[in-house]
Nucleic acid binder design. Structure first.
Length: 480
RNA sequence: AGCGGAGUAGCCGAGUGGUAAGGCACGUGUCUUGGGCACACGGGAUCGGGAGUUCGAUUCUCCCCUCCGCUACCA
């Protein structure tokens, strides 16, 4: 297997990541212009596959897709106090339109809780209207100071679910259900293991009661927040006057949730599996699962090889790279870089023996197999590869997670790992959910990533900062 | 946004007060094809933008823009 970037590239991980995304002058998945991202064909195809996986799950849990405007009246933004304050620094505001100064500016949506709250109040009157389970696929704008391809761009694509419920219990169930959907897609589709947990109070979404998240570990040991699910309580219900009449005839405010994942997932995917040769895509998200490269020397070989190539490719659902210009070597390189899981090689030798060469992207191993056996073998290989990628990533997460029982240890571990590898580790320690503790982490550039929903360690203990009792270890790490 | 660095062809990159080397990529031809073929020829640059100094500025000065690193902010 190609050496993992965590050891191969050390501190150059960021540069390596840029290389994989840009692929030199080929610029395959994406490029960036003034902080905004152009997603190219290979990157967008992955997003489309990911979208479908997510959308199928949303539909299966009774959600409906809708679309709300990109431009939100500024006054809407200002109705929920904590929400305005949290988002104010990163808002893009439209003040001039049609050549005139606007009486009321629009903000370009940084998220849609406000405008959806406005419509919830028009659409919801009775408990019979609940739950209202909506989702929208959209682009949003947040004026970030420092952008990084896929991970943080000024404009990005995402999915935002917004739901309204008659009780807090039901809303909380929804919050956790959707967190599970995200974890399912991350682990079983992206082959990216995640830790489900709750954000600390100071890290929660502006305007939420609580934020839940999935955290993944990249190859260099840094954490990536990969999806969030918010318990909004009645905050937006009250701000937008979303009231309903219960079966008992009483008026109450709705309990809302919102949840989202973005094109950041593609960044996580790249940083989870790719190597120095380029992209590595898990088969379930590979736009092309297999490419067949025909090899021939002489004109009389060309006909039979191409004929067999197309026949076999059709049988197994592969694409034939029958371009005339590039040599087979150039083609191997081309597809390897783009993360195609399996490259098949078919030449005169194979025609003579009825075989075909199969190369796996993630291990680089070549294997000769019978042409007749390929149709049965390919799906197996792909499914094994999907599993392998997950196992490798899971193993990495495990070996790079360590326990610590004092704040000094946490700091030492993170400092040492950063010095050696330029990355990080997940440090599990007992820490109270308190802004004081969050602030203490900041001193060494780490954060409490989440308080895991499932405690896989030793249960309760004393906070390593305040000494107060807490019920489990939390994840501390440096992050993107 | 603060501090630091940098902008020369699609990409990388040398260099100069007298309009610019090399490599990759691109085009054509020959040759090749089981891991980025080779060779030959060829096209492509208002040297980030504006102003100033100068006989002459890509080079020096000033302003602006953009990009990169650290700080900061976040899906």
């Amino acid at each position: 297997m190609a050496e993992s970037p965590i050891t191969a590239r050390g501190k150059d991980f960021a540069a390596w990541y840029q290389d994989v995304v840009l692929q030199g002058d080929m610029a395959e998945p994406a490029e960036i212009v003034k902080g905004c991202m152009v997603i190219k064909a290979n990157g967008y195809a992955v997003w489309e596959l990911l979208q479908r996986e997510l959308d199928d799950r949303f539909k299966a849990t009774d959600h409906q897709n809708v679309y709300f405007p990109l431009l939100i009246p500024q006054s809407f933004m200002q109705k929920e106090a904590e929400h305005v304050e949290g988002f104010a620094p990163e808002l893009a505001v439209v003040t001039v339109a049609g050549g005139k100064q606007l009486e009321e500016p629009y903000v370009i949506r940084p998220t849609s809780e406000t405008i959806i709250g406005h419509f919830f109040s028009k659409w919801i009157q009775s408990y019979r209207d609940l739950p209202m389970l909506l989702n929208q696929w959209a682009n949003i704008v947040r004026w970030e100071l420092r952008t990084r391809m896929f991970l943080r761009t000024t404009e990005f694509l995402w999915q935002e679910g917004h739901t309204a419920h008659s009780t807090h219990e039901e809303a909380l169930e929804e919050v956790l259900r959707m967190l599970d959907v995200y974890a399912d897609v991350a682990e079983n589709v992206m082959a990216m293991p995640v830790i489900k947990g709750m954000k600390t109070k100071s890290e929660k979404f502006a305007g939420a009661l609580r934020t839940y998240a999935i955290e993944a570990m990249m190859q260099n040991g840094l954490a990536l927040q990969s999806g969030t699910s918010h318990d909004l309580g009645q905050n937006f219900g009250k701000a937008f006057n979303v009231q309903f009449q219960s079966s008992a005839g009483q008026l109450d405010y709705v309990w809302q949730t919102s949840w989202g994942v973005s094109t950041r997932l593609i960044g996580g995917l790249i940083m989870s599996h790719s190597d120095d040769k380029g992209l590595v895509l898990p088969p379930k998200l590979a736009p092309k699962k297999a490419v067949l490269v025909p090899i021939y020397r002489k004109d009389e070989e060309k006909g039979p090889v191409l004929e067999a190539a197309h026949r076999i490719a059709k049988e197994v659902g592969a694409k034939v790279d029958d371009r005339e210009g590039p040599t087979p070597g150039a083609k191997f390189f081309h597809w390897e870089r783009r993360g195609v899981p399996v490259v098949l090689e078919l030449g005169p030798r194979d025609l003579a023996s009825g075989t075909i060469v199969l190369k796996r992207r993630h291990t680089g191993l070549k294997e000769v197999c019978g042409q007749d056996a390929l149709a049965a073998k390919l799906p197996e290989v792909l499914s094994q590869m999907q599993q392998d990628l997950y196992t490798t990533a899971k193993e990495r997460l495990k070996t790079n997670t360590v326990l610590a029982d004092s704040i000094g240890d946490v700091e030492d571990i993170l400092r040492q790992v950063t010095a050696e590898k330029g990355g990080g580790q997940f440090v599990m320690a007992h820490v109270k959910d308190d802004p004081v503790c969050d602030a203490r982490m900041k001193a060494f550039k780490a954060t409490v990533r989440c308080i895991p929903l499932v405690d896989e360690y030793d249960g309760p203990g004393k906070c390593i900062i305040t000494g107060e009792p807490v019920d489990r270890r939390v994840v501390i790490a440096k992050s993107y």
